[in-house]
Nucleic acid binder design. Structure first.
Length: 192
DNA sequence: CGGCCGATCCACT
DNA sequence: GTGGATCGGCCGA
């Protein structure tokens, strides 16, 4: 049920992004348990990917976490306001990551509503990477946390989608990445 | 529903 | 000093 290290060591980050659709993201932070079904992801393909923070093998204090062994969280602050949650994949030294862009709330919905200060019926409640982190209580200070620990983890509950429900598109907000901005590395499912 | 735009602050140059 | 893997309020249609 809970994804183990083998899942995160997959060397194909685009495949992992696709496999994460339908998995359940859990957090137990500040004693509060919340969970949601992952419905949108984006793959960031390491040093050859112009959209990746690790493009060109750039190692900085911020990106160092991406070089860790797969199975930990890379969370960073975006636009000074939003924490964006990524799953680090592949073996140590290869900075692959998958950004979680949307979830469908599943457990602890009142807790999420309090964090978001809006009702779960709102269309943008947990759609968009900043909203996902806020709903799940994930903060950029959580970067580096293991996904096989007891604070943040991901489970397979057997949810599967047919190929016709799943679509791949270019990634959002990466226009600066030139031709890499066109790669179909974003996966999204219409779960309604 | 869609487009515009300001917010806000850390990491990197 | 600069700018961003975004969000939400506001506006017009």
């Amino acid at each position: 049920m809970r994804l183990n290290e083998d899942f995160y060591l997959n060397e194909d980050v685009v495949e992992v992004a696709q496999l994460l659709i339908g998995k359940v993201l859990h957090t137990r932070l500040d004693g509060q348990h919340t969970a949601g079904i992952i419905t949108e992801t984006e793959a960031y393909n390491g040093i050859v990917d112009k959209a990746s923070h690790a493009y060109g093998n750039r190692r900085t204090a911020r990106t160092e976490v991406m070089y860790k062994r797969g199975g930990c969280a890379y969370v960073y602050l975006c636009y000074g306001i939003h924490s964006l949650f990524n799953v680090v994949t592949n073996q140590s030294g290869i900075p692959h990551a998958v950004l979680v862009r949307a979830i469908r709330p599943l457990e602890g919905i009142p807790i999420m509503e309090a964090r978001r200060r809006q009702h779960a019926s709102n269309k943008r409640f947990s759609s968009g990477p900043g909203s996902v982190s806020q709903a799940m209580g994930i903060h950029f200070s959580h970067t580096g946390l293991s996904l096989t620990g007891n604070k943040i983890w991901i489970a397979d509950t057997g949810i599967r989608y047919s190929p016709s429900q799943l679509k791949a598109t270019p990634r959002i907000g990466v226009d600066y990445a030139g031709e890499d901005a066109l790669l179909p590395y974003r996966f999204i499912v219409d779960s309604r």
